Computed example of a mutant assay.
Amino acid sequence: MSPARVVVVDDSPTMRGLISATLRRDPDLQVVGAAGDPLEAREMIKELNPDVITLDIEMPNMNGLEFLERIMRLRPMPVVMVSTLTQAGADATLRALELGAVDCVAKPTSAQASEGLSELAAKVKVAARASVRPAGRIAQPKVRTGYAPADTVLAIGSSTGGVEALLTILANFPETCPPTVITQHMPATFTKSFAARLDRICGGRVEEATDGAPLEVGRVYLAPGGETHLEVVRAGGLRCRLRQGDLISGHRPSVDALFNSVAHAAGPNACGVILTGMGRDGAAGLKAMRDAGARTLGQDEASCVVYGMPRAAFETGAVERQASLADIGPTILTLCERRR
């Protein structure tokens, strides 16, 4: 298979050189161009037809978000954002992921430039194989009255492409949604902003999980990025636990850690959902949930940005049923509804 062709877009000549040099060290990638602003990048895309572009947000002539919106509307293609992880940078990068960017990496500072792009090549290679479509509008929250959840814990795991997927699913959730715990692979700087974004479109209340928080109807708990795993434990009722520990399935927080804890704490009174993402994190944990009697769903290949985690779960027998992204939200609510 021929190397994936990449165009690097950044206004800093130093950063363009650093990104290009990092990518050129991988034999599966070929840097075919480097542009200093979106206008130059537009001409390179037309001429060079790359498989992936890396894109900064703060640039002259047109900011990266505006350029990304035009790309996804006129010529959808895989984009990996390389941006600062300040609070403002996190908010902008989340908006880029909503617009259709496949993934993001932190722009290194000069103090740690040599190792700051360690994940870039892997993410660009995944992006080159990703399924990219024009970004759709996130549905407005639907007013749903009279929904009564059963005594069921909902656990969701996601990675690459998960921002759009979670926004789409939670936009369907009513004020009385089932108690929900979510692990999304995401840098620590992003999760508070992402929880706030989800809170604005979800009928229930969405927040970063805190250690000891009780799982309650109408509440959604997002795993903080960084140093802990989000788990569910029984301690006078079901509660969130933030546990420090090693990487599990290559991640912290890990979907496997969450799903395994739910299988142990809630058994058949649970529903597990695995969404778009690369790798295998969550497959073993979802199998444990299904073996414990929980209902399990996997996002189907056609609607995934990366059909890695759902594929691994499906192939291990962890997935009871596959569904499209458009159908998963309503299906979750049906599975978690109190039987009349």
Rank of each mutant, 00 (worst) to 15 (best):
R42M: 12
T334K: 12
L23E: 01
M62L: 15
E47S: 14
A294V: 05
T228A: 11
G203L: 09
L333Y: 10
S254W: 01
E337F: 00
A90F: 08
G250D: 10
E208Q: 13
Q244L: 10
L117F: 00
E320T: 07
A209C: 11
H264M: 11
A213G: 11
K192W: 04
L258F: 15
A96Y: 04
R75Q: 11
G157V: 00
T160M: 09
A283N: 04
I328Q: 08
G162P: 08
I45F: 01
Q30R: 15
I71A: 04
D291P: 05
M15H: 00
G36M: 14
L65I: 03
H251W: 13
D300V: 09
T22R: 08
A288F: 07
A263R: 12
A130S: 15
L198W: 07
C304A: 07
R295W: 01
L39T: 12
P76F: 10
G282P: 06
R311K: 15
E40G: 04
G272A: 06
L74D: 15
V79T: 06
R129C: 04
P134I: 10
P253I: 02
P187Q: 08
G136K: 14
L120Y: 13
C202K: 09
T191P: 03
K125Q: 15
L120W: 08
I274L: 04
E320C: 02
Q140D: 14
A326Y: 03
S118A: 15
